[in-house]
Design a protein around this nucleic acid. Structure first.
Length: 403
DNA sequence: AGTCCACAGGAAGGGCAGGCGA
DNA sequence: TCGCCTGCCCTTCCTGTGGACT
């Protein structure tokens, strides 16, 4: 049998096999279900906080806390949508602006965030070039031109504040004073429960007038969420017993992240389908877990700048030899590797920051330890598994023609 | 009890790219 | 075109520090 024939067989077999998916969108991360499970209290609370806007009153500012995948964005989106649709039939004008502060190149600095806000309100602001003050002015002008209540939703605000400080929020809390008829309310969404520690007390008290906590889902709740999605997303009977339990158990043990649970279910389905299976078995959940982790790591590493990749490569080489890896070792070997890759090495200070970044990205583990007489340093290790580590090694080796 | 290592990590600023208005 | 602004990456210089060693 020729290669062409094989390929044709493969395709026709693919066609013959009925998909186990009914509607894959339901299992995607962006999907917004009409029925949000286990968040009734939070929906209720947020709705009652924002309700005064329907009568043209200034609603309280709200801070929403919860780790990833606890439904924060989903709930806020849902409540705002309902609020807006009621407002359309009412008399008081209402506007909502949603901004994800973590979006690279869009809203990750003070300038960009203000510019983005101003643009959302219809002002014309260039992506760079103006003094920040001017951008604020244009933003305020745009606000004044907007009638009624404006609800500004700042998602993932914690990472932004950690990066640029709370000046921006401070300015935002004061704008109500000189805006005339326009009323502004801020909804901040944070993944970090303790992040108000980073904020000035004045900002803190005026912005967190109300607080809503989103606790992680437990395994049981995750199970129901998954069952709801699976019902619409998969063809009936294509999930083995225990698949949903396994997905929810895995996700529950990792911070009760619903997004992760849904990803697991979807990827397990995709992998089974790729193997022409008519049913998803429990084994595929494990494979899905590995695949998701691998994809995540490979993707983050590939998007890193070259010196970060070279630093990681150095760590890979050193930790392969076993033993403890510390910053000093990494730096001296990194210098050689950088030259081998045809580039000037950066300073140790910079590499120290890159190591810290790699740690935060979850690619390596770096812990500050004191070795007494032998100084303070970071103990660096990798725990990604043979498979992923050799893959990363390959990627970087190829890219810089090392070896 | 004090010393001192090997860094961590803060502060300031240089240099560059992208982009403005004039 | 120029002067100016900002963000970003990086360097230089610096102070701080946990605990093994003396």
């Amino acid at each position: 049998m020729g290669e062409d024939q094989k390929l044709q067989d493969k395709f026709s077999q693919y066609l013959e096999n009925e998909s186990i998916f009914n509607d894959k969108d339901v299992l995607s991360t962006n999907y917004k279900p009409n029925d949000i499970l286990h968040r009734e209290d939070q929906i209720e609370e947020l709705a009652s906080i924002l309700a005064p806007s329907l009568k043209g009153n200034d609603p309280s500012n709200v801070f929403i806390y919860g780790t990833v995948g606890t439904g924060k964005t989903l709930v806020v989106d849902h409540v705002c949508k309902e609020l807006k649709s009621v407002a359309e039939n009412g008399e008081e004008p209402l506007d909502t602006v949603y901004i994800n502060c973590k979006m690279k190149k869009v809203a990750d600095t003070e300038y960009r965030l203000t510019a983005k806000l101003a643009r959302e309100l219809g002002a014309d602001v260039p992506s760079t070039g103006l003094p920040t003050e001017e951008v604020y002015d244009r933003f305020f002008e745009a606000l004044k031109d907007t009638e009624g209540v404006v609800i500004i939703i700042l998602d993932e605000i914690d990472s932004l504040i950690k990066k640029i400080g709370d000046d921006f929020l401070y300015n935002l809390t004061r704008i109500d004073d000189d805006l005339g008829s326009t009323k502004v309310s801020v909804v901040g969404i944070s993944n970090d429960l303790n992040f108000t520690d980073y904020m000035d007390a004045r900002v803190k008290s005026s912005l967190s007038e109300e607080e809503i906590i989103f606790p992680p889902y437990n395994a049981l709740e995750l199970k129901e969420i998954l069952r709801q999605r699976a019902e619409d997303g998969f063809v009936e009977g294509s999930l083995d017993d225990g698949v949903i339990s396994k997905c929810s158990a895995l996700a529950a043990s990792e911070h009760g992240d619903a997004r992760r649970a849904i990803d697991l279910l979807r990827v397990a389905g995709e992998l089974s389908e790729r193997d022409n299976k008519s049913k998803v078995t429990v084994d595929y959940v494990d494979t899905a877990q590995e695949k998701i982790e691998k994809d995540r790591v490979v993707e983050t590493v590939q998007s890193q700048p070259k010196h970060s990749q070279l630093t990681l490569y150095t760590i890979l080489q050193l930790s392969n030899n076993g033993g403890n890896v510390v910053t000093g070792d990494v730096y001296s070997k990194y210098k050689d590797i950088a030259r081998k890759a045809g580039t000037d090495p950066l300073t140790q200070r910079r590499i120290s920051d890159l190591i810290d970044e790699l740690d935060m990205l979850g690619v390596i583990e770096a812990q500050v330890v004191s070795k007494g007489r032998h100084g303070r340093t970071r103990k660096i290790s990798m725990d990604l598994g043979e498979h992923i580590e050799s893959k990363l090694d390959d990627i970087i080796t190829d890219k810089f023609y090392l070896n």
